[in-house]
């Protein structure tokens, strides 16, 4: 039923790749538009994934096999600026001025990592050895965790909720993945550096996913990672270039001061710039959290306010890879229903 139909998928990360693969299998002609030179999105920047520490390359391999089909065209280094519906069809204008024609559109524009320098009090980009969770993944890929002076960190802190659940940066929502990412990364550091002492500063431990709580358990009892409930209010530097963390140990009801060698900021997720631009230019509704607004939170999680345009993945809300892939599949289901309905 999808034969002869064309679908444009905007974004070539996990959501876009999965959606494109499923659409192609169903018989559609699919074009993926990806702004980077390669597909894979954020997943390709990770080393190992939670909760089972599988290599991200395995997921990338799977996704690559999904889009390795003859009826999929890949357009890289190009962004979509505008999606217009004209007479039941869609015209997408790209940054290179190209016009793409489609029967349906899947928006899979994903997320941007919160720019941690916006939390000025943590001194990212100012104090040495304040890094983000993404920077730490780069170190994991390199296979070594080093301070800027080449030394080995002995004491490492994680700050949860950087740019999430934070009214001051305009993000009231929880990014969902950062808690489990911190736990995963803390364990990984322990495996690299057996002697290192690790402290996670959290507001709440939100370990809601499958096997997350178990990972938290393992981090505590097997790896001796300490969890301190309290949002870090300020980071500064000593004369010896160590970082000073100020938090309240809220469960002890007292302020706590600690010097550490390296601080990892768990950067949250925000609606991507590309997604925002498309939303603005094409009048696609977004929520208060600036992500695309699903038409119905219970049974229309992929539907936009325009029939024929569907959301897949983290452009609709923060989600993990498992959820992203399921979300992409359900977007495809919506596209199929829409196109076989005779485009009402």
């Amino acid at each position: 039923m999808m034969e002869g139909k064309s679908v444009v998928v905007v974004g070539g990360g996990a959501a876009g790749m999965e959606a494109a693969g499923q659409l192609a299998k169903a018989g559609a002609r699919v074009t993926i538009v990806e702004k980077e030179s390669e597909t894979g999105g954020h997943v390709s920047k990770w080393c190992y994934l939670f909760p089972d520490r599988r290599k991200s390359t395995e997921v990338i391999q799977y996704l690559n096999s999904q889009i390795n089909q003859k009826n999929i065209t890949l357009l890289t280094g190009e962004e979509v600026n505008l999606v217009e519906k004209k007479g039941g069809r869609f015209i997408l204008t790209t940054s290179n001025g190209k016009e793409l024609d489609a029967d349906a559109v899947v928006l899979a524009t994903g997320f941007d990592l919160f720019r941690s320098e916006r939390k000025e009090e943590y001194g990212y980009g100012i104090y040495e050895n304040v890094i983000t969770s993404a920077d730490l993944e780069v170190m994991f890929k390199k296979g070594e965790i080093r301070l800027t002076n080449g030394g080995v960190p002995q004491k490492i802190g994680f700050i949860h909720c950087v740019g999430s659940r934070d009214e001051k940066v305009g993000n009231l929502y929880c990014s969902k993945l950062c808690c489990v990412t911190a736990v995963k990364q803390a364990i990984e550091i322990k495996e690299f550096l057996k002697e290192a002492r690790i402290f996670c500063f959290y507001m709440d431990m939100r370990m809601g996913g499958a096997l997350y709580e178990e990972l938290y358990h393992e981090a505590q009892v097997k790896h001796g990672i300490s969890f301190i409930r309290g949002k870090v209010s300020e980071v500064s530097q000593t004369i010896d270039h160590r970082l000073v963390v100020k938090a309240e140990d809220t469960l002890a009801g007292r302020p706590l001061r600690m010097e550490i060698d390296m601080l990892v900021l768990m950067a949250g997720m925000e609606m991507s710039q590309g997604g925002k631009r498309i939303a603005q230019n094409s009048r696609i509704k977004t929520g208060e959290n600036r992500f695309f607004l699903p038409a119905d939170h219970h049974f229309g999680g992929n539907k936009s306010n325009v029939r024929g345009i569907y959301f897949a993945g983290a452009c609709a809300a923060p989600m993990n890879i498992t959820e992203t892939i399921s979300h992409a599949r359900s977007a495809v289901q919506d596209v199929i229903t829409y196109l076989s309905d005779g485009k009402q």
């Binding site: 320098e117 000025e120 001194g123 990212y124 980009g125 100012i126 104090y127 040495e128 530097q237």
Partner: peptide, 10 residues
């Protein structure tokens, strides 16, 4: 300490 980061804030 990185002064570029401070300059960006300033």
């Amino acid at each position: 300490m990185n002064s570029e980061g401070k300059k960006r804030i300033w």
